[in-house]
Amino acid sequence: METIAAVVVTFNRLADLQKCLDSLRQQSRPLDAFYVINNGSTDGTTEWLATQTDLQVTNQPNLGGAGGFATGIDTAYRGGHTWLWCMDDDCLAAPDALAQLLAAPHLGPCIKNSMSVSASNHEELAFFVQRPHKTYRLVSDMTDVELVYDVASFFNGTLIHSEVVKAIGIPDKALFIWGDEVEYMTRAQKMGFPVVTVPSSVFYHPAAFDRNGIPWPGAWKQYYAVRNQRRVLQNQFGNTVGRFVFAAWAAKATLQQALAKRANRLYNTLLYSEAMLDGLTNNFRKRPETIQTLRFYKWRNG
């Protein structure tokens, strides 16, 4: 008998976590287990989770989304479940979201993703997707087909078969945030597992806030998006070619920041340069407090 476990990663968003878990508890196809990974929350989340008898909770230091899902996927996989349904704490699942994923065409061991819809505008996708021959921005861009191949918004309603985890392992903790999900997806694709979005399965999520650039000091997160692209391109092109592709991509992105007419152009350029250098030298050890550009920003701005 197939069993399905939810894997939820949370950090200092107790109200969002409570709503997320409520939506999971109300699924038309009941979940068999709930795994919650608490990334060092300090807002009362730890205390509240201790009162929830239906949850299997792991409390750990803040290891970012990558470290959270690495722990959650590993724990749920070792629990012997057939499918792992992975999500951040700020997601809301439609009542039949899981049932619709299971009802979608059988693809064998694979990854099926719910369609991630903006919580504030239900006609728009939470994350825009730019493909070579198609751009997905609106819900209607996806709903005319049963499955959208090679498009998925990890980790927002991402249903992963245990055979996939057995073959590709768990997310890379060293990536911390931003890009870890893409690296995991490309790893699965490289091994030949289908990755699809199921438009009939709906997840609501806050719209991506980085569409037009992120203001400082929050922009430090972009460091990880740039640096971690090294691993994504390595998966796609191999180590040697991937390094050259990354160097060209990162150099172009850094130049664009240098030429952009934005208030924080200096910090953006330094951040991209630092991320490019660390990616090229395989330095994946930095945490937020050791990003030099962020230190420089704090020194100048107090």
Score class of each variant (00 low, 15 high):
Arg78Trp: 09
Met185Ile: 14
Arg285Ala: 12
Ala188Trp: 00
Gly179Thr: 06
Leu21Tyr: 09
Trp220Asn: 10
Pro215Ile: 05
Gln56Asn: 14
Gly218His: 13
Thr10Ser: 15
Ser114Phe: 08
Ala247Pro: 01
Asp210Met: 09
Asp278Lys: 03
Ala76Ile: 03
His106Ser: 14
Leu175Glu: 05
Asn264Asp: 13
Tyr204Leu: 13
Asp32His: 12
Ile177Asp: 09
Arg131Asp: 02
Leu21Cys: 06
Val8Cys: 10
Thr58Asn: 03
Arg265Glu: 10
His106Ile: 02
Asn235Cys: 09
Thr45Asn: 09
Arg13Thr: 07
Trp299Pro: 06
Ala126Phe: 00
Thr3His: 10
Ala119Leu: 14
Gly169Pro: 02
Lys298Asp: 13
Arg295Ile: 12
Ala119Asp: 09
Lys166Ala: 14
Ala275His: 02
Lys19Asp: 03
Trp220Ala: 09
Gly40Ala: 07
Leu159Met: 06
Met115Thr: 09
Gln130His: 12
Ala76Gln: 08
Ile214Met: 10
Val117Ala: 07
Arg285Trp: 05
Arg29Met: 07
Pro30Tyr: 05
Asp88Ala: 08
Pro30Asn: 06
Thr53Ser: 14
Ser23Thr: 10
Ala6Leu: 04
Glu124Trp: 08
Ala119His: 11
Ser140Ile: 02
Gly64Tyr: 02
Thr58Val: 13
Leu63Lys: 14
Asn235Pro: 00
Asn301Ser: 11
Tyr204Arg: 05
Thr58Phe: 04
Gly44Phe: 00
Leu159Ala: 06
Leu159His: 07
Thr75Gly: 03
Gly192Pro: 05
Leu17Thr: 01
